[in-house]
Structures are given as structure tokens and as C-alpha cells.
Computed example of a mutant assay.
Amino acid sequence: MIKVSHLKKSVDGNKKQVLRGITTQFEQGEIIGVVGPSGSGKSTLLRCLALRESWNGGEYSWDGNQIIKGGGKGSQKYRSKCAYLEQNPSLYPDKTALKNVLIGQVGQTSFLRRITGMVRSDDYMGAMDELEKFGLLDKAHVKAGKLSGGERQRVAICRALVHGAGFIAADEPVVGLDPQSAERVLNTLRSLCSEQGKTVVAALPIELAERYCTRIWGLYEGELKLDVSGRRLTAEEKRSIDLV
């Protein structure tokens, strides 16, 4: 179980409070859709949960192990178990999909592996297995710069899994994608939760969150206003977070 208690996040020298004491908990295997208007704090929440941003206050624990107490960012041990998927994932455009999966995220790979792409044979097989699972085996040796948006997102997901992520925070992962590609990406994320027990929290449009997610968080002005499981939001609930 992952527990969040009184998460606070401020910017501009603590003059602007972006997240206002968010408290929640969620289980392994859940896929949670975060909805809310622009500026409600969705991206900041995802980055905080994925340990990509320091907290100004609050506590964070996984299965009883405390990661953050009273603020901070959390140790590298836990950051390595988290993946943060951006709208446009950072891939090396001149390297193949396989190489991108193997050598890790831009800025987080050792200098030697970035330059040479050297990997162990078991890493290679693990990467090929993940690419095959997500329908990308035929793209393994295609340079990332030539992949479609949906393919790039799935490569980023494969990369996260190969490097040990158990928790994935996805910031509008299907923005700009055609409906078929968006469906493929969201089905991929959903299957990670239902079949592999991963945990996904994703900022999504309300109609996609209702269709693909087991749970919906409604964020408004930095506060968690709604936490709904197993159903669509009512019209009144949508109005409460300014989505109508």
C-alpha cells in the first residue's frame, strides 16, 4: 500500500502553494486517473508521487516503509522504482527503440553506457521481451526519431519496466495521439496493473479516465476534491472541479 499524508508543494520561493495538504492511499495494481482543469496541480502531483520533485511538507510511505517525512525528495533507492512518463518522452532519437530501452532515460544513464550502448545479454533479452509484449518487436531496430507518438510512449513504458519501475506516473500520456494509438497506450498501462501488479497514476481527460481507470481523483486548486472508484463522475461532481 502507498500512503500520502498532507502533501504540500510550493513554488516561487514558497510564495505560491500548488498542492495543499493532499492525503490519500492506494494499492498495488490500481490504475488511477487524475482529472481537473488546467492549473489544478496535476503535473506537480505526479512529479511529487514519482519523486521527481521535493515536497515542502508531508509524509510518504510504501508498504510501511517511510520514504518522506516532513518534506524532501526521497532516496535514490525509491526513485529508481518510479517512472515518470512525460507527454513527449525523452528518447535518444538517433538510437533504436531497443537501445533506448536498454540504456535508460536521458540524463540518468552512465556516461559509458550512453556513449557505447554496452549492455549485458540478460538485459538484452529482457528488453526484447518487453518490446514483444507491447507489440513493438518489429520496431526494435528502428531509430526512435522515426517512431510514431504512440510507439514512443510504449518504448518509454518498456524502458521503465526493464529498469525496475513498479510505480508509473504518466502526465497526459496520450495527448496529441490519434484514437487508435491512444487506445493502445492506455490498454498497455491498464494491462500492467491488472496482469503485472504495477501501479499507475495518470493525468487524463475525464472521458478516458472513466473508461480505462479503476479509480478517479478530482483535483481542483491543489486540493484532492474527489476520490471515486468503480464508476463515472456525476454531473455535480464534475461541476465541483470545474469540468462542466
Score class of each variant (00 low, 15 high):
Leu7Lys: 01
Ile115Trp: 12
Gly164Met: 05
Val228Cys: 02
Leu45Tyr: 01
Leu19Asp: 04
Leu226Thr: 05
Glu221Gln: 11
Gly126Ala: 13
Leu98His: 12
Ser181Gln: 12
Leu46Asn: 02
Leu45Asp: 05
Leu226Ala: 00
Leu137Gln: 08
Lys3Ile: 04
Gly21Asp: 12
Gly145Trp: 07
Arg79Leu: 03
Gln108Ser: 09
Asp178Gly: 09
Glu130Cys: 09
Gln180Pro: 04
Asp242Ser: 05
Val174Phe: 06
Leu112Ala: 13
Ala165Trp: 04
Lys42Gly: 09
Ile32Glu: 04
Leu189Arg: 15
Lys95Pro: 00
Ile32His: 10
Gly71Val: 01
Asn65Gln: 14
Val162Pro: 01
Thr199Ser: 08
Lys73Ile: 15
Thr116Cys: 03
Arg154Asn: 05
Asp178Ile: 12
Lys8Ile: 15
Glu221Ile: 03
Asp129Ile: 12
Glu210Arg: 02
Val162Thr: 11
Val200Glu: 04
Arg113Cys: 05
Leu45Asn: 00
Glu210Ala: 06
Asp129Phe: 10
Val244Tyr: 06
Leu136Lys: 05
Ala97Cys: 03
Met118Tyr: 13
Ser148Asp: 06
Leu137Val: 15
Pro179Leu: 10
Ser54Tyr: 14
Glu172Pro: 03
Thr116His: 00
Gln28Leu: 15
Val155Arg: 00
Leu85Met: 09
Asn65Leu: 09
Lys77His: 11
Leu161Gln: 01
Ile157Phe: 04
Val174Glu: 04
Gly41Met: 05
Thr23Val: 10
Gly33Thr: 08
Tyr78Arg: 08
Glu130Trp: 12
Ser191Gly: 07
Asn14Thr: 14
Arg159Gln: 03
Arg20Gln: 15
Glu130Phe: 13
Trp62His: 09
Cys213Phe: 12
Glu237Ser: 02
Cys213Lys: 04
Leu102Cys: 02
Gly164Leu: 00
Ala209Trp: 02
Ile68Leu: 00
Gly104Gln: 06
Arg211Phe: 09
Lys16His: 15
Leu45Val: 08
Ile206His: 00
Trp55Ala: 04
Ser194Phe: 09
Arg20Val: 15
Met1Asn: 14
Leu91Tyr: 07
Arg152Leu: 13
Gln87Cys: 01
Asp123Ala: 14
Arg239Trp: 07
Gly41Glu: 11
Lys139Phe: 12
Lys15Asn: 15
Gly107Met: 08
Asp122Val: 14
Lys198Gln: 07
Leu189Gly: 03
Pro89Thr: 09
Glu237Val: 03
Val185Ala: 10
Pro179Phe: 11
Gly126Asn: 06
Asp12Val: 14
Thr234Met: 07
Arg215Asp: 14
Arg114Trp: 01
Ser5Leu: 10
Met128Thr: 08
Gln17Trp: 13
Glu221Leu: 02
Glu221Pro: 01
Ile67Arg: 05
Lys9Arg: 15
Ile22Met: 11
Gln17Pro: 09
Gln66Glu: 14
Pro173Ile: 13
Asn65Gly: 03
Gly176Thr: 13
Ala235Ser: 13
Val162Ala: 06
Pro93Ser: 08
Ala83Glu: 08
Lys146Arg: 10
Val11Met: 06
Ile67Trp: 03
Leu51Glu: 03
Ala170Trp: 02
Val35Gln: 03
Ala170Met: 10
Asp12Trp: 13
Ala209Met: 01
Lys81Thr: 14
Gly29Gln: 07
Gly230Glu: 11
